[in-house]
Nucleic acid binder design. Structure first.
Length: 569
RNA sequence: CGGGGCGUGGUGUAACGGUAGCACGAGCGCUUUGGGAGCGUUUAGCCCGAGUUCGAUUCUCGGCGCCCCGACCA
């Protein structure tokens, strides 16, 4: 539908909004009559909202098609056995939603569709001649998020475009990865947003590398780091950085156990007590593998934080680590504040690279009244594993030490994953190669959440009065405001003008409601169509129309002809 | 799952151990008509359950739901 009388439109605007809605996109989309809450994280898309979302989907579809991908659709209920094949009933980071049918068959409500697609593909006799291909769908995804937030920014049910590509080998995959990279960049550009392709962690999806496309904005949850030349862009989960030497000029001293007052307990206390910066202390962070129950002690320089994602990757325990409890500490014979950097039994030690940057550490083996000083990594203790398991921070240097890293925050509007043979090997999905041998597929997958993109556009394009939609995804191109005048005499001309816009094929929302002009203007600003046209006795008298861009402050009175010319351009 | 806040007409809110008030909205009438207008009138509400009490919307407990922070995740 290209036109609509506002008096007939389902879904009203509201002047007031609950102060509980904090995200600006949530607020405006609710107030403007685009969405309505059902339960936490599940939303109705009202006529205005679905128009926008459909336009976003259309842009995505156009670009996916242009890249040679093919649209299809999978069922929403996935046989649970498939998820078991890849072990994702255990590792899926979101709580998988499951249900049974009357026969007792178990299903997962699809949260992502790798298993389904691989199951589909492996059911065919596919040869290398059929490869590569990229198949995608738009479908509702169900994720039992621990916490939904920010309206459409993180929902429990949302429509996602997810694509899956199948290849004979890595080289072929890499071309597709690049193609999807370019496709995504174009999509977000067309949606009116600048995106960063951010190196990220694959998480429960699997595979070895991936990129998040992130649009910078305050409401976002993705924290990432950008080098000055923007060559290095990485999510905080994976961001690498240089650990600078803390005190390389210092002489190495002998290890000593010294007395320490009992009030010295926390990191803050020791800094106060020794009057030294945090970087001079050893810090131990304890985790437990929730599946194997193994206790992990990560030792790190006191000024750094342990990066759990990196840690899980290094230990090959993706999605399995949780904070150790007091009970877990008791299991290895200690308690909070008294975890040693060496010597505990029944646990695995791992060191961060930063331990090599400090001479004469303080701490590492703290008892009730004593602590160790002049501890040197490599001399006094050494862990089996030493790796990069630290969080980067704003202002840290890139790995080569040449540039500063700037911390940014944004919304992850899409992602592309290298999956490699993660799924094809676990699910034994093969094709026949040129030599007639069975070979596992090399795969990638590519996702974009529609609602989240709608919300992100609002986060980026609004002012204090409401939304300012980019023309290409606005619910309507033109918001026609009729002011019939005191005696209603202009009504006829306004209706005629409305008809004229329709005949010319211009998308228009016509505010024909019998309310005050001020209310119409306020709603137009809130709804945010890119062009506002006002017809009133005043404009009719001049034989012209009033025209205003939502993004601009002032209106202009122009000839109808030049208006049409501009709108049809 | 941990911490905090909250649950009153469609929306936003107030008060109170005993009668639930206001504003917006919606309906009707009149007026008004270029930035959420006015007057009158009508409409509509205490999340659920248990307990304490003569009496609970109010106090207590439990449940459910919502928002925010964290954990988690994309």
């Amino acid at each position: 539908m290209k036109f609509m009388r506002q008096s007939r439109l389902f879904g009203k605007t509201s002047k007031t909004v609950s102060k509980e809605l904090k995200a600006i996109s949530h607020k405006y989309l609710h107030q403007g009559g685009f969405i309505r809450e059902s339960t936490a994280g599940r939303y109705y898309f009202l006529p205005l909202g679905i128009r926008v979302r459909d336009k976003v989907a259309k842009i995505i579809e156009e670009e996916m098609d242009r890249a040679g991908a093919q649209k299809m659709i999978t069922p929403a209920l996935h046989p649970l056995e498939l998820w078991k094949e890849t072990n994702r009933t255990d590792t899926a980071g979101f709580e998988l939603m499951t249900l049974e049918d009357r026969r007792g068959s178990s299903f997962a409500l699809g949260g992502t569709a790798e298993e389904m697609i691989v199951d589909l593909v492996r059911g065919y006799n596919i040869s290398y001649k059929d490869l590569p291909f990229n198949i995608y769908q738009f479908s509702s995804k169900f994720r039992d998020e621990l916490r939904a937030r920010g309206g459409l920014l993180r929902a429990r049910e949302f429509v996602m475009k997810d694509g899956y590509s199948f290849h004979a080998n890595e080289e072929c995959f890499k071309k597709e990865y690049q193609s999807m990279w370019d496709t995504y960049t174009r999509i977000f550009e067309r949606l009116g947003m600048k995106s960063y392709a951010v190196e990220a962690d694959n998480g429960y999806i699997g595979g070895e590398y991936c990129h998040e496309f992130v649009v910078e904005c305050e409401a976002g949850e993705s924290v990432f780091f950008v080098s000055e030349d923007e060559e290095y862009i990485a999510h905080e989960d994976v961001a690498k950085f240089k650990r600078e030497d803390v005190n390389s000029e210092e002489e190495i001293k002998n290890l000593e156990i010294i007395e320490q007052p009992e009030w010295v307990k926390t990191m803050e206390d020791v800094q106060k007590h020794y009057k030294l910066p945090a970087s001079r202390f050893l810090k131990n962070v304890v985790y437990k593998n929730r599946i194997s129950e193994e206790i992990i002690i990560a030792t790190i320089r006191g000024d750094l934080e342990v990066n759990k994602t990196k840690l899980e990757q290094v230990l090959d325990m993706v999605g399995m680590l949780e904070d150790a409890t007091e009970k877990d500490l008791a299991f290895i014979g200690t308690k909070t504040g008294y975890v040693h950097s060496w010597g505990h039994k029944n646990c695995t030690y791992i060191a961060d690279l930063s331990l090599r940057t400090v001479k004469n550490f303080i701490g590492g083996q703290k008892e009730e009244k004593t602590d160790s000083i002049n501890v040197n990594y490599g001399r006094d203790f050494e862990h089996e594993i030493i790796a990069d398991i630290a969080m980067a921070k704003n202002g840290f240097l890139t790995e080569d030490g040449k540039q500063k890293l700037e911390e940014k925050r944004g919304v992850e509007v899409g992602n592309i994953f290298q999956l490699g043979k993660h799924y094809s090997s676990r699910m034994n999905a093969t094709f026949v190669d040129a030599e007639g041998k069975e070979n596992q597929y090399y795969m990638g997958c590519y996702g974009i959440g529609l609602g989240r993109n709608v919300a992100t556009v609002v986060e980026k394009h609004h002012d204090e009065k409401g939304i300012i939609w980019p023309s290409q995804i606005a619910p309507f191109k033109v918001h026609l405001i009729g002011i019939p005048g005191r005696d209603g005499s202009a009504r006829k001309e306004i209706d005629e003008f409305y008809k004229e816009l329709q005949e010319k094929g211009i998308e228009v929302l016509y505010d024909d409601r019998d309310i005050n002009p001020g209310e119409k203007f306020a709603d137009a600003d809130l709804i945010g169509c890119p062009y506002r046209i006002v017809i009133s006795p005043k404009t009719i008298e001049q034989g012209k129309v009033e025209f205003k861009k939502r993004a601009e402050k002032d209106a202009q009175i122009i000839e109808k002809e030049s208006l049409f010319e501009m709108l049809l351009k």
